[in-house]
Simulated assay, not measured.
Amino acid sequence: MAKLTQKKINWIIKQKENRVSSSEIARIMNITPRYVNMIYRKYRLEGNVEFKNPGRKKDPIYEEMKTMVYETRKEHPGSGALSIEKNLKERGIKISHNKIHEILKEGGMVMENMNKKKQRKWVRWEREHSNSLWHMDWFEYEGKNYIVIEDDASRFVIQFGEYEHATAENSLDALRKGIEKYGKPREVMTDHGTQFTSLPRDEKESEPNEFQKYLEENGIVHIKARVKHPQSNGKLERFIFTLKYLKKYFGTWEEVVNYYNYKRMHMSLYEDRIITPGMAYEMKKLKEGEVLE
């Protein structure tokens, strides 16, 4: 038997008022004549027939659920419903992300993100192995200059540093420190800022700066993000936004980076379960004897 809506119920009543037979109405609506008569009888007695959704009632939200969700959110600042759901699942606790979203919304921890409602015109991509590509960029925070290097495949923070000035020399210093700890990347992606690339003067081709010379001498490919195309280096821009957000919850930048690398579960790194960037960096390393193509 077909499900009825308010519009269909109103149509049935109108047809009965026009003296159409119950059997004819039932045939058209794919319901029984008895059901048609019941609707019309109710209308004649009460003057109105309201449609009631017969769907199942929502399961209740218990205080224990709220406590677990709020504690997980406190442990992982800024985490959304999906991330919290998977964090709880790792601990053997099953609460749907829809219910978690309700709890977060009730606690005033949810903001509508209109960008997520818009269809993307681009597809996110990432390298398969760690050290295939590093993203580098500078940002300011409370009047100070910081540089960050993030591995593309794992989102692992290779290097983070504070400098008095954002210069090519300091960019090179940060890159060298990252290479000392984690080895040489195949490619490095930056923007077109003078911290990474020299600009032509008086219509003459510019000489490479110290940063560019180091990349060329060490066989590292320099990829420059497309101008006015934030998706090119969008992962790092998103990461910097996350860093600034997390700083409110931690005392030092070292604590922020440590949390991001080794404790904060990342939704985009693994299909079956969420893992930390530190775990992903180790998992995506080339095995001994393998070479990046």
Rank of each mutant, 00 (worst) to 15 (best):
K121A: 12
G161D: 08
I274A: 13
L88Q: 00
L133A: 02
V36G: 02
H76A: 04
I13Q: 06
L215W: 02
N10W: 08
K86E: 06
L88E: 00
M114V: 15
G234Q: 02
I149Y: 01
Y260M: 12
M38D: 12
R19E: 14
A81W: 00
K117D: 10
I223D: 08
K228I: 05
T190A: 04
T72F: 02
T72K: 06
Y245C: 00
Y281N: 01
K287L: 11
S206E: 07
M136P: 02
I61P: 03
G251N: 12
M136S: 05
N115Q: 15
K14Y: 07
K244F: 07
K99S: 07
Y40M: 09
I25L: 10
E164G: 14
M267F: 10
P185L: 08
G193L: 00
T67C: 12
E254R: 08
G92D: 11
R201T: 09
K94C: 09
L269M: 13
K66P: 01
A225P: 01
S21F: 12
P33Q: 02
T252D: 05
S132K: 14
G80C: 05
V188F: 01
R124H: 05
V69Y: 01
G178N: 10
I149D: 01
R226E: 06
T194N: 11
R120D: 03
E106I: 04
V110W: 05
M29L: 09
V20P: 01
S21I: 12
R27Y: 13
M114E: 14
N261E: 00
Q212H: 00
T276V: 03
K204E: 11
K287V: 09
I179N: 01
Q6L: 07
F156W: 00
N98A: 12
Y214G: 00
E205C: 09
L269I: 10
I12T: 04
E293L: 15
H76P: 02
S79K: 10
G289V: 00
N10M: 11
G193I: 04
N98T: 11
Y70P: 10
R273H: 13
R201L: 14
N53P: 01
M279H: 13
E271A: 15
G219Y: 02
N115L: 15
K177P: 00
F196K: 03
L236A: 06
S96T: 12
D137E: 02
T167W: 00
F139Y: 01
M1A: 04
E128K: 15
N53C: 05
S79R: 13
I93K: 13
G143I: 06
L82T: 12
S23E: 14
S21Y: 10
L4R: 06
Y40D: 07
K58V: 11
G161K: 09
E46G: 06
V157D: 05
G193P: 03
A2Q: 14
